Computed example of a mutant assay.
Amino acid sequence: MAIRSPRRSLRGISALVALFAIGAVGCSEVSDAVDGAKDGAKKVARQRSVFSLDVGDCYNPNGKAEGTAYAVEIVPCDEAHEGQVVAEFAIDEGKEYPGDEGVSAIGDERCPVEAQKYAPDTWALPKGVSLFYYTPTKESWATGDRAVSCTYTAEKGTFKGSLETAKSLEPEQVTYLEDSNAVYEALWANQPEKDAVEDDLAGYKAQAKAVADALDTHVEGLGGIEGTEVGKLRATLTKAAGDWKKAADAADVDAFYLAYDPAFTGIDPNKTVAARKELGLATTVPADEAEVWAG
């Protein structure tokens, strides 16, 4: 979901003009109007161009979360807000604008990876928060704009507090999250275009190999972490890795399905809850993941 952002600034009404606009009204109405004017002035003072956003900024969009944006309202993270910038990177492309679909594809690929460096435990994100990004438009590209700002934004309502967790994690927590995230990234990033295995056996086998390789790394990482539940999870994922390898080496569609069913079940996020609890990580499976495995 690209949030388009051409190079323009937002001009707001000054506090003085807002106060003068109150006019001759009753005392209570004047008080309400003054308070409203102060709130309006505060919002104006907090306006910042989308081109000067920094990682860690908490903000409220001016209007809908999606669409063309010129500026946002920057707020302290301990106040209710709709979004937070969690990553930023520059598009390394040629002189030609990649097109709307092109920059969206880059955001789709890079933002999940970059965002996890700031907030590695996606299970700990507030309910209803999704990954969005600000990208260049054709017009801003012509002025030299190449920046993509990745944000977690509430699809409804607001949330409080910073989403940054990377700095507070212990080494074993980081190892677990990086390797676990890589497994699911391998699964979804390598999803074949065809819905049926019969129509793209090679594509599904390639996906299976990517997941198996990621699982091998995850199992190796778990070997360096102490804990009874972590040990149980390591055994579960070792078997799952074997099933994914069988799927990757399947000679035909039937053999693939025989291996794929237990392979997919073996990486069900619900199987990781006990180990996550032991490691002091979030233990509630996100709704979107729970829905996938329930279906």
Rank of each mutant, 00 (worst) to 15 (best):
G161T: 11
P286H: 02
V148G: 06
A80N: 10
T151Y: 04
E29C: 12
Q116C: 05
G227Q: 05
A202R: 08
A241F: 03
V17M: 10
T143A: 10
G102C: 03
A255S: 15
D78K: 08
P6E: 05
A241R: 14
P120L: 09
C77K: 04
G295T: 11
A154L: 13
V17A: 15
A33E: 07
G99P: 01
D92C: 04
L215M: 13
S180A: 15
L177H: 01
A287E: 13
G83Q: 02
A71M: 01
L177A: 06
L281M: 01
G295I: 02
I267C: 02
T151E: 08
S14V: 04
P98R: 06
A33I: 00
F132N: 10
A259D: 14
P126L: 15
K95F: 01
P192C: 04
S149P: 00
G242D: 15
G221T: 13
I225F: 04
L16Q: 14
D254T: 15
K246H: 14
N181L: 07
D195P: 00
I225D: 09
P269A: 00
D199L: 05
S49I: 02
G107H: 01
L187A: 09
D145M: 02
Y260N: 12
T238P: 10
A189S: 13
Y257F: 11
A24F: 13
K167A: 15
A250N: 07
F132A: 09
E172G: 06
L233W: 02
D57T: 02
R234D: 07
A250R: 11
G94A: 06
C111Y: 01
K246M: 15
A240I: 14
T122N: 03
L19T: 01
V253T: 15
K95P: 00
I22A: 11
S9Q: 13
V230F: 01
T236K: 14
C58I: 05
D213H: 04
A18D: 11
L10T: 08
R48I: 09
A241C: 07
L201V: 01
E82D: 08
P6F: 03
Y204S: 00
A282I: 03
R11A: 11
D145C: 09
G56C: 03
G231V: 05
T137G: 07
P286N: 07
A189K: 08
A294T: 09
K277V: 00
K64S: 15
V72N: 05
G102K: 06
S168L: 13
A119G: 04
